[in-house]
């Protein structure tokens, strides 16, 4: 049965009438027009749909609306509001992508890790980045460029 859910998305309060089990991804894309979060699998297996929920990288495709009611959600659009995040700047500088479909999810995952690394003054090593992204799939084979870019971004 339909219920009304309210979520704060990129600082803006958004509402939707939907079944509680509806995935956050589809509320973002379908109801709120935020298509930067990509649909990849619907099962939390590829990482393309990663957003932040209260600052924590989360697969939006298998996160039900009931579990995020009243919480803060940040999407790639929100992350980019004040200009590109250092991770995005580094990905652009390294031309780290081919089709780019996996990248907004990778941006959201790695931006959280890079923010933490920069705050602590401890840049990420290549292996840290590979571990961080191991739940993210890239089919084009741009992995190494992506890893190098994120390491560089973490160096501040």
């Amino acid at each position: 049965m339909s219920e009304t859910f309210t979520v704060v998305v990129n600082g803006v309060q958004r509402s939707i009438d939907a079944d509680p089990s509806t995935a956050l991804l589809w509320a973002l894309r379908d109801a709120w027009g935020l298509t930067g979060t990509r649909f990849g699998c619907g099962a939390g297996s590829c990482g393309a749909c990663t957003v932040w929920v209260d600052g924590v990288p989360t697969h939006s495709c298998d996160t039900p609306l009931w579990s995020v009611a009243g919480k803060d959600v940040t999407t790639v659009e929100g992350l980019t509001e004040q200009g590109p995040h250092p991770v995005q700047e580094a990905l652009i500088a390294h031309q780290a992508g081919q089709c780019g479909y996996c990248l907004s999810g990778i941006v959201m995952r790695s931006a959280a890790a890079v923010d933490e690394a920069r705050a602590a003054g401890k840049p990420l090593a290549e292996d840290d980045v590979r571990q961080c992204l191991d739940g993210h799939l890239c089919r084009c084979g741009a992995h190494n460029r992506i890893v190098r870019a994120i390491v560089e971004a973490s160096e501040g």
Binding site: E77, Q95, Y101
Partner: peptide
Amino acid sequence: SSLSRIDLEAKITGQPSYLSDVR
């Protein structure tokens, strides 16, 4: 020369880029 990809920045910054994003 290694000109940067004309389409990549929009994809990295999450702008509507793919057919799935068209409304």
